[in-house]
Design a protein around this nucleic acid. Structure first.
Lengths: 210, 210, 210, 210
DNA sequence: CATGAATGAGACTTCATTCAT
DNA sequence: GATGAATGAAGTCTCATTCAT
């Protein structure tokens, strides 16, 4: 009798993987990479230790997978938002809002990626920096475009982009660690203004129109 | 003659402590807290393992001491700079310049504190956040003062302060990890402009005067 | 089929725990607490080092468990013997015999408890003294009863009880360390006579009847 | 100029050795062999660590020396007492009293020898057993003599001697650890009676005459 | 003679990963 | 597929002993 991979079996496997990922997310978010043992994750996921190794190569791969999940989630959400938007300034604005929204919706994942990630294996930390690099690049392109169109004064676009991303990073970290600001979306409005001003956009009379 | 604590002996002890701290700084900067073993540090410092424990209580204390060194260096340098300066905007400007200068002069220490610190024991990571908190508070006070004096438009001073600090954090991280911008002091000029604009200062005609 | 806790598995686990306890018993009996490393025990038990920590919290717990085992064995055996006996003198007599019998049957355990125990952690040494205290108290009660019934002359019951217990302690130690007397049970007969006389019982014509 | 070993120098050396021995006595008495570090002893003696090694080969030798001191003190005191005494029974009696007296006068030393000694290196523990062996032998000879003279009933003299010594051992341990009996000399009277009766001496009308 | 800084062997313990069931 | 008992490498830290000062 041949073993047949039925849809039901597939679903069960998928569910199990999700349970593991969810458990890992919660444990890593709270105790970091080194403070979390594989046993902890297995217990929380309600599976055996060995089972985890059926789904993930090792502990580092598990951590990497989570960071990657957050990574792609953020980028995709931003891409989605930009697709339906035209104009450098608008693009920047919707990007910021999208990023904050997705992080607010996935607090544990955000914590893993932004707070705990640097604590993991260097290779894992690299992922976070890669994300920040891509975000920075995105912003840099918009800034360059703005400069070209004379919407923005001449400036070092790379430094500006880093500063831009940095404002978000810091606010999100504070939100994750201190709970302040309590509402990321609200704080986002302020951030948008800060950064657009910072870049040199003329906001006369239209703050908050976005 | 009995063993006497001569000036020469004292110097040697001090030198040895410095050798250990320096070795630790380099190892931690490169491999992080968990990626560095006490043995590694001992070897690099050219001392026995046990020797390290004559100077520091344990591995965590060694790490803490380094972060603390950076911490105090940064704060003191900023305090010094502010002491001889009047005016909210000027104070912010010299603070930024002082912070960047001291970090540029102590790259390994900066790396330990900013990049590797979150990876250490939670207690150690807390130190970094404490520094960032204090810097944020400093900025927040200046911002509030600016708003009161009508030099700045009304805004959420806390979010603004976080954003302000975030721009520096991100630029410094990039400098530490990518080497870009290559010159922190130069980038500082851009950052100053970005943040003063972001806060809402009117920079007409005087960008770069600081 | 999933991993199931079958009877066979349980037996194996129990056997392994016993192997570890037995190995520890032998090593501790010969080399004491500080003279025995966990590695030694693991090697003798034929298991990995880490395995020991699956069964016992740490080295001290392993030692404590052994002393406790001996402790309870002795007390239970004495309680058993006294349950079926009436009369102060008879109770003392069967207690002595029971104690000697159980020690003779568990030589390594006796060695761990009586010879090596004081060498372990202070907390562990305390267990031995606790046992001796309880035995002394038991005897003291019997002595007081005998005095009340005028079967014994007035005397310091506590000192008498200590002396009583001391005779056994010393003989057992000699047996453990020198092998003399070779037969504890036989020596017991002499000890019984010695102590009953010492306490002041009138043994005229009935020595050895017990 | 030749260095001359004056009496004054000799005295100073002797005093230093005594300070070390005294410090060691106190530390070992309280914390045992493994619980006491050479540094502890040096600090208490008010000398440098290295100085200890000028007087004693190593830590074990220091401990051994102390046990030996107690050892010889006890034996010598007993010998002294027996020298001026005739008669088996009297000899036993004065021996007991001498032993208790010397222990009472040297509580720390007693603690090192009786309580902490088994905790030290096996070689050190051996010394204690050696002392007990010699005491036992002494008693055994007296008992044999008593039997020969028909002052004592026939019995296993070795077991009797062990029992005899054991009563003292236990009472002294209790005194050292619990402080009960509070007065060793007083308890000694009871012990003497216990043991003489235990051996089979006829004490009619003369208890306490010794 | 005296000192105490320096050393490193060795002890305990943890935990990621494997594999027989 | 699923499990968790078993493993042992590797890490941190202690402390008896040495030796330059």
């Amino acid at each position: 009798m041949v073993y047949r991979r039925t849809k039901k079996v597939d679903q069960k496997l998928e569910a199990r993987l999700q349970a593991i990922m969810q458990a890992a997310k919660e444990e890593f978010a709270r105790h970091g990479f080194y403070g979390t043992s594989v046993k902890d994750i297995a217990r929380r996921a309600g599976v055996g230790i060995g089972t985890i190794y059926l789904y993930l190569r090792n502990k580092e791969a598990l951590f990497t997978a989570l960071v990657n999940e957050a990574y792609e989630m953020v980028l995709e959400r931003i891409a989605q938002a930009r697709k339906n938007t035209a104009g450098g300034r608008q693009k920047l604005q919707v990007s910021m809002e999208a990023a904050l929204a997705v992080l607010q919706e996935n607090r544990d994942l955000a914590r893993v990626m932004l707070v705990q990630s640097p604590a993991g294996h260097p290779a894992v930390a690299e992922q976070l920096y890669d994300l920040l690099r891509r975000l920075t690049q995105l912003v840099e392109e918009d800034v360059l475009e703005g400069i070209q169109r004379k919407e923005l004064p001449p400036q070092d676009a790379h430094v500006a982009a880093l500063a831009f991303v940095g404002t978000f990073y810091q606010v999100v970290i504070s939100w994750l660690k201190e709970g302040i600001p309590s509402d990321l979306t609200l704080a986002g409005k302020e951030l948008v203004a800060y950064n657009l001003r910072g870049l040199g956009y003329d906001l006369e009379g239209d703050i908050g129109n976005g």
